[in-house]
Design a protein around this nucleic acid. Structure first.
Lengths: 199, 199
DNA sequence: CGTTCGATGTATCGGACCGATACATCGGGC
DNA sequence: GCCCGATGTATCGGTCCGATACATCGAACG
């Protein structure tokens, strides 16, 4: 999950850890409150070991802009740049639409956040998969509320009702997005200003 | 988190792992889809080591009812019973209203699910703490939407909007619950049929 | 009658992610 | 001159998840 998110952000521009976390928080803030450094830094090191990202400025760009002068001490800010292999990996992860994509809030949120760079067919598959998942959950809650309501106290009942309401709302939201997706009226800016693969 | 949930369920009646998971799923199904055995069984063992629960039927009850006859093979079903210390521990956890109580969905959900056995003052503190947390999140989303809207693509924007909507809805829900709580018109069954401490 | 299949049931392992914590630098206000 | 909050990198222990394995039981199906 974090892997996709990090690659996606570094695909837009090189960044160091702190900035990465801030961007992660604002872009995915709707689904998770904040990403912990305890997961961010280990993941960064793993991505680097796998060759998807590398330390330092991108090879094409001169590294002299402004990231170096600030580090007077020993442990300066470390800028991470996505590699060519990393970009391929990103596309691969983007295209994946397995259960891990819609099972968790976070998983769906991250994929959705990069929908502008996902091809339309995959977008549709992810939205429909997510809808199916939420519908299952909704049915489960309805069953509990209709069949076992008398055996639960009022607070638990209220919790279920609130959960059911949220499910119904999300399903309606997804329906709308799916409909938009089908007739191309996507709420998305035309790809003119974002040429899909700028490398 | 799991600790509180398990103690709460075992407080109602002794149970084995499988049944525990099912109850967990229906009672807390509004917040988490299902609890994994990978967390359930280790937690059960930890609780047993700490002395909060014990294997076998409760000391007061004859264990002959129906849990023993089914185990013909070697590894039969293991019934867990809450101990007296476990009940104290449960009360202690119930009364806690720290950040861990409202920070995560799951944490809040579990506490809320046992509100019928929580004292009114704690209920109010937890609801208000949760509201505060969700309001902060809501403000963060509003800031992003008003200040950085033009720098985000339409999908990310839509995600934020949906998140903001969910936050506003939850705040309203909490307001209602808090109001009910304050003038005693709680949607809760009077404590007559559940004498708080039946041991 | 055997067999297969789904529900019931216990259990472990690796991995993802979090929360707390530590430490270091820098700019600005007092 | 000093402290404080924002910036910045990093680790550690712990919680929980997902996949997997394995065993029993009753019912369905040939």
């Amino acid at each position: 999950m974090l892997e996709l998110a990090i690659l996606g952000l570094l695909h837009e521009s090189p960044m160091h850890g702190y900035e990465l976390r801030k961007q992660l928080t604002t872009k995915l803030g709707a689904f998770r409150f904040a990403i912990s450094y305890g997961s961010l830094y280990p993941t960064l090191r793993r991505l680097q070991a796998d060759g998807w990202i590398s330390e330092g400025a991108p090879p094409g760009m001169p590294a002299s802009t402004e990231e170096v002068p600030l580090l007077t001490g020993k442990r300066g800010r470390v800028v991470y740049t996505i590699t060519a292999e990393g970009k391929e990996r990103f596309q691969e992860l983007l295209g994946a639409a397995g259960p891990e994509t819609y099972d968790s809030e976070a998983g769906f949120g991250v994929h959705f956040a990069f929908f502008a760079r996902t091809d339309p067919a995959t977008r549709l598959r992810i939205l429909e998969g997510r809808r199916r998942r939420v519908e299952e959950r909704r049915e489960g809650l309805r069953d509990v509320l209709s069949r076992a309501a008398e055996r639960l106290d009022a607070y638990t009942l209220e919790l279920q009702r609130h959960g059911l309401d949220a499910c119904e709302r999300e399903v309606r939201w997804l329906e709308e997005l799916i409909a938009n997706e089908r007739n191309g009226t996507t709420p998305q800016p035309p790809s003119a200003q974002d040429p899909e693969r700028s490398s």
